[in-house]
Design a protein around this nucleic acid. Sequence first.
DNA 1: TGATCAGTTCGGTTTGTTCCGAACCAACTA
DNA 2: TAGTTGGTTCGGAACAAACCGAACTGATCA
Lengths: 161, 161
Amino acid sequence: MDLCSKHKKNLIEEAGLYFEKRHNLPPLSARVYGIMVLSSLEGYTFEELMEITQASKSSVSTSLNLLQQLKFVEYYTKPGERKRYFRSSGSFIQNMLKEQYGTIKADLELTEKINDFNKKNNPENYRKKGYLGSIFHVFLEQEKKNIEQTLERIKDFKEQN
Amino acid sequence: MDLCSKHKKNLIEEAGLYFEKRHNLPPLSARVYGIMVLSSLEGYTFEELMEITQASKSSVSTSLNLLQQLKFVEYYTKPGERKRYFRSSGSFIQNMLKEQYGTIKADLELTEKINDFNKKNNPENYRKKGYLGSIFHVFLEQEKKNIEQTLERIKDFKEQN
DNA sequence: TGATCAGTTCGGTTTGTTCCGAACCAACTA
DNA sequence: TAGTTGGTTCGGAACAAACCGAACTGATCA
């Protein structure tokens, strides 16, 4: 039995490649997550994932554990069955944006440190090159809030719908 | 001669580690970029970078080429000299945000494709799980603009100051 | 109790990345 | 033209990441 249409396979490949490059997941994890986001809420079993990816038991296990740790994937069980059904947890875009937001936040924090240093040690740099001191600092604070709010709105939006 | 104070060395290490993890640069490239963002507009020569990083000629060359390709670093020359002086191009935070923005944009594009697919193939998923159809789509469009504007504002701010 | 099922853990192989030294090139200098 | 300076390119060593098979665990079932 074919678990996957041709078109779906192509999309999985595209999404997988994408997660690998941009969000640097290991190749197999990336493809597994690709499968999840393109699948119904039903999800897939361990076996089916082996079948689709043509990967080994241990590799699939490791990949699923990583994805669960990242909160990208979750599983549920059907009463009476021991098998787990794996599916994407939350929406794909929310997971991705949350990650990006974390990075941006960390960027801004590092920026503060760097600005402080340059203010003291490379004042000419600090002025001319865009390390614009307290005004810029305030400005960035504002943008930081802006970005935070975007994520909040997405969260709220989803909860209300 | 010591090209680098103790305090600066620590910051370089911290920044380097950060670029390595979050923006996945190779270790040496990450440290070199750390040096750049913590240095005056004067920049450093190839030799000085070898001295500070204790790395080989070829490694420094490769690193600088990567950083230039990413537009993180640029060089200038002094009239009459053949030597290049390397320095961070643009402000660090701008470079970082630009990168993040690119990722978010790509995320949103992939989201559209995935939503389209799920709409057709996993309609129940599409409804229940946050793939909320055209409303969500419109909503995301708006957020996309929001994020774009943040970057624009940073750019404008810097140009005006 | 033994057998089976669902998944994990552990070494080892394969694959890929990062860095190095040595040879090289291109521009200038004596 | 030969030598020096500033930097690049190439092949390989050292290390790390990704995946595999085989042995294992822990739960259920006959």
